Amino acid sequence: MNLTVNGKPSTVDGAESLNVTELLSALKVAQAEYVTVELNGEVLEREAFDATTVKDGDAVEFLY
């Protein structure tokens, strides 16, 4: 899956889609429990991480 992460191209191997929690784990995001996630310009509530799917071509920003 090809994404733009914090403005840079990134690839997650072996996945066509992941939820936000899985993406944080796959990318080994440090202190993931404290990060705010913006997906395609929309800031996500932490409670929505498990239910929100990240797909090929999406833009993700991790805000600390």
Rank of each mutant, 00 (worst) to 15 (best):
N2F: 09
G57M: 04
S10N: 09
T36H: 09
M1I: 13
G57D: 04
A30D: 13
F49N: 02
V60D: 03
F62I: 15
Y34Q: 10
L24H: 00
E33Q: 11
Q31T: 09
E61T: 14
E61Y: 13
D13I: 15
N19D: 03
Y64H: 10
T4E: 04
T11C: 12
N6F: 03
S25P: 01
D50P: 08
G41C: 06
D58M: 05
T53L: 14
E47K: 07
L18T: 04
A15D: 06
V35I: 10
A48H: 12
E47R: 06
F62W: 09
A15G: 09
A48E: 11
S25F: 10
A51Y: 15
S25Q: 14
Y64P: 09
L23N: 01
D58K: 00
E45Q: 11
E42H: 13
V20E: 01
F49K: 00
S17K: 12
A59E: 12
V43M: 10
V29D: 03
A32K: 10
L27P: 00
E42S: 11
D58P: 01
L27A: 00
T4R: 07
G41L: 03
V54D: 00
N2L: 11
F49T: 01
G57V: 02
V60K: 00
D50L: 08
N40T: 01
V37W: 00
S25N: 12
L23W: 01
V5T: 02
V54E: 00
Y34D: 09
T52K: 05
E42I: 15
V54N: 01
N19V: 05
G41A: 03
F62P: 04
V54Q: 02
S17N: 09
D50H: 08
M1G: 03
L24T: 01
V35W: 07
L44Y: 04
G57I: 01
A26M: 12
N2P: 02
S10W: 15
S10F: 15
E47M: 06
L63C: 14
R46I: 06
G57T: 05
V5I: 14
A32T: 13
T4Q: 07
D50E: 10
D58Q: 00
K55N: 09
Y64W: 13
V35F: 08
N19Q: 05
N2S: 12
P9A: 07
K55P: 01
E45V: 09
N2C: 12
E61P: 00
L23Q: 00
M1H: 04
D50N: 10
E45W: 07
T4I: 13
V60I: 13
A51W: 14
T53G: 06
L3P: 02
M1S: 01
L18C: 09
E33D: 13
K55Y: 10
L3I: 14
T53Y: 15
T21S: 09
S17R: 11
T4H: 07
L24K: 00
V54R: 01
K8C: 13
P9F: 08
S10H: 15
V35M: 10
L27N: 02
L3D: 01
E33A: 12
A30H: 12
L39W: 04
D56T: 09
V29G: 05
V35Y: 08
K28N: 13
E42W: 09
V5H: 03
V20P: 00
V54L: 11
L18M: 15
N40M: 02
L44R: 00
T21A: 08
L24N: 00
T52L: 06
L39E: 00
E22H: 06
T21H: 08
E22Q: 13
A59M: 12
G57H: 05
N6P: 01
N19T: 15
F49V: 02
K28C: 14
D58Y: 03
A32I: 13
L39R: 00
L44Q: 00
S10M: 15
V35D: 05
G41P: 05
V43L: 12
T21K: 07
T4S: 08
V43F: 08
L18D: 00
E47G: 07
A30S: 12
A15N: 08
Y64T: 09
V35G: 03
T21G: 06
E38C: 15
S25C: 12
K8T: 08
V12E: 00
D56A: 09
T11P: 07
L18V: 07
A26L: 14
V5N: 02
E61Q: 13
N6R: 00
M1P: 02
A51V: 14
T4V: 12
R46W: 07
G41V: 02
S25G: 09
S10T: 15
A30L: 10
A15R: 12
L24Q: 01
G7T: 02
G7A: 03
S10P: 01
Q31H: 15
A48L: 12
N19K: 07
F62Y: 07
G41H: 05
D56K: 05
T11I: 14
L63D: 08
F62L: 13
A48T: 10
G57Q: 04
A15W: 13
L27E: 02
L44E: 03
D56R: 03
Q31V: 09
R46H: 08
L44C: 06
N40W: 02
S17W: 10
L3E: 00
S10D: 06
L3M: 05
E16I: 14
E22F: 03
A30G: 10
F62D: 03
E16N: 13
N40G: 01
A48K: 12
K8P: 02
V37S: 01
S25H: 12
G57A: 04
T53A: 09
A59K: 15
V29P: 05
V12S: 02
E16M: 14
Y34R: 10
P9S: 06
